[in-house]
Design a protein around this nucleic acid. Structure first.
Lengths: 184, 184
DNA sequence: TGTTTTAGATGACGTGTATCATCTAAAACA
DNA sequence: TGTTTTAGATGATACACGTCATCTAAAACA
């Protein structure tokens, strides 16, 4: 049990940060330190060697999540003809039933807004803030303010999640999708 | 201390439901049964005479909140010239710094989406669902889908709350306000 | 006024969980 | 190969909270 190779150890240090996608799925309060470490195959003990506290994990998790999101945006741009196509593609995916049903992946803002709004350090708030701002810029279009688009996406996704099960859920996704993709 | 008049008792039964605005402020998990009862001037003991469990309070609180929101919309319509003016007024208020800073009041959806998405009974989800649907209808405009507007408002408010303190917070409010009120 | 009812108070109980002190064996290095 | 270092395991502590059984005094009613 104790002592793995130095390389392993370094790698392990990253894993709780990734496992913190549980935060996005269930909400910070519904994830225990044990849950996180168990998801990584370790026991709760080692946690406090790496992190000050459970609270301190949130900003690291947020940073990690926003980084991968940024990476995904770049990829998206590279994979299609022009930026407009990328934007359209992003919106489609963002408002897909699959994204609705898997909060652990993709948009960190959707999973964390509320938790961040309530408890967080300035650092964490800044991460969210600039994450949203960046997305807003990326979504900018001639006739439409990207920041507004970002808010619409976020709101729609959250409503769709809360309404999951009801027909309104899918309806919201589709109606918003239509509105954002067609002109003006 | 025990035993108040029958009328008082009936009235008291309503008060925890109102006090559950704390749910919207802090999130369900950060409000204890004691907090709720204390807010009402009572002790935690009486709670379980009135409610099955803490969980059972959420739907009642949600219903209460959506009811008062509906009432406010009606009032708004009565207080201004036409429906369009009422809509404009609503959006202004919804995206005001004051609304941002007082999550206990006004929009129940903004305070509860996440909590409802995660844990709730079908009943609670339905409350949110129809609350959003109703608001969407109310916000409908010739050129703009009301449901989409509702999502935009929600998203903007949540971002503004999470970003509170940063300049982006106010910027989001203003930018979205501008986009929703000007034509198209 | 005496009896009955019951709103609300008190005080436990059990559980879940963050945190920390301590222990261990294996890796690293001599 | 012997010594030192340390990643991670174990177990204990402390506390917050939901829930409930029990108690009380005053209101309701005769």
């Amino acid at each position: 049990m104790p002592r793995v190779s130095r390389a392993q150890a370094v790698q392990n240090r990253e894993r709780p940060v990734q496992a913190a996608e549980l935060f996005r799925e269930r909400g910070v309060d519904h994830v225990s330190v044990q849950d996180i470490m168990a998801a990584v195959g370790l026991t709760h003990g080692g946690f406090y060697r790496q992190f000050e506290s459970k609270e301190a994990l949130l900003p690291e998790a947020a940073r990690h999540a926003y980084d991968s999101m940024a990476a995904r945006l770049t990829e998206l741009d590279a994979s299609v003809a022009d930026h407009t196509a990328a934007q359209r593609r992003f919106i489609q995916t963002y408002l897909s039933p699959s994204h609705r049903d898997h909060p652990g992946q993709d948009c960190p803002t959707a999973g964390l807004v509320q938790d961040i709004a309530r408890t967080s350090s300035a650092e964490t708030r800044d991460l969210l803030t600039s994450g949203v701002a960046d997305l807003g810029e990326w979504l900018d279009q001639p006739g439409r303010d990207g920041l507004v688009t970002a808010c619409t996406l976020l709101g729609a996704l959250l409503v769709a999640r809360a309404a999951a099960g009801s027909p309104l859920s899918t309806q919201v996704l589709e109606q918003v999708r239509a509105a954002l993709i067609s002109p003006t």
